[in-house]
Design a protein around this nucleic acid. Sequence first.
RNA 1: GCUGGAAUCGUCUAGUGGCAAUGACAAGAGACUGUAAAUCUCUCGCCUUCGGGCUUCGUAGGUUCGAGUCCUACUUCCAGCA
Length: 408
Amino acid sequence: MLKFDIKKKNSLARVGVIHTPHGDIKTPAFVGAATRATVKALTMQEMRELGSQAILANTYHLILRPGIDLIREAGGLAEFCSWHGPTFTDSGGFQIFSLPHAKISENGVKFKSHIDGQNFEITPESSMQAQWAIGSDIHMAFDHLAKSESYEDMKAAMVRTHRWLDRCVKEHQKMTMDNRKSSFEGHPQSLRGRSDEPREDGREERPEKEVFGNHPEQYLYAVVQGGTFNDLRAESARYCASKPVDGFGIGGVFTADGMDEMLKIVNSILPENKPRHLLGMGQEPIDLFIGAEFGCDTFDCVGPTRMARNGSLYTLDGRINIKNAKYTHDFTSLMPDCDCECCKNYNKAYLHHLFKTDEITAKVLASIHNEYFIVHVVDQIRESLAQDTFADYKKQFLSRYYQKSATV
RNA sequence: GCUGGAAUCGUCUAGUGGCAAUGACAAGAGACUGUAAAUCUCUCGCCUUCGGGCUUCGUAGGUUCGAGUCCUACUUCCAGCA
């Protein structure tokens, strides 16, 4: 069972530590979205320097490229991408929702690779197997997001997610047992993925027996669905809570509107002693304040880096578009109080110039800043919860950040 | 000097009788939440009560119901010949 210590709690909100085989995560925490085993425009060293504690990769993308066998061969995700810290994987379930041509059946999802048209199928079982091969610390159950907002679709998607969860749990337990057995049978080298000692015949060491990932303990989160219908959310939370899983993902959330009520219901039902991950939320600071306040421990979102690549940069006074003409002669720092590499060394006129000339460095510096900004907002949320100043911090931060839109 | 060719929105460009006029870039602005996103959308002659109105394709004339498109002259540029 995944170890999760709660250090402090206040109503639903809590401060804790998730202990993974690759290290600890102090929660609440923002997890960097490294869909294809990379946080776009950033190196893993930069991610660590800017304070990121964990990354989340996507099983669907890694199945397509480079293929899970290659990641296994590399010694697992963390080794492959040189992250050396806690890792999550998303199951690929979100792609059912976001890819237009996926064919969904009770068994799983069939789709053609958008890269070369090759046919693939992901099932709850194959998603579990792939995540074990990838070797992330925390796996998401293979879930199904509804196509539409209707109650019928939401309920159908939720019920299927529950049926798939049972299959995920079963497969995960099987993989866990297999993995422990091979560990007992004496394949310690294999479990580390690669041997440090070269073989006498000069050939590279390969595990003789199938092993999964590069460490023997991997963990499964169930995913709560139910959309905007709180009765479905409650039902889904009860169902997930009853299963032998290590934590929970809360999926299918797209806006902070109504999220507080929903989380209040869901996180009151989910067992307190297991961590909760709010899937895909965190582009807007308010998502993180509400998420943490109502009992979520980790977050991931592509927003910060995508915004960065498109020139939309976070400041304490809201997001600005650095490409706007008004920054041409603005030689002040993007955010004077910010300690990121971008703000410490460069001014807005320079960033504006880099974006206007489409230099790669524009996206790098912007991504460093945006990722740092969001990671540190959550760090500050954690600190304020620990020191009982959360309410003040939230009020002060949000009133300033959203001042412009509030007055319009 | 002669003989050809060419001049279209900031730039390059489409257009050979019905066009405020093609496409690209540039410029201006917006969107983006478990990433098919280094992406996408809108604006880009002037005015507008959003119906339309006005002025535009080197300059000046002409032919025609109608000209960026045909004719004449001029101006500038390019190529070849002197």
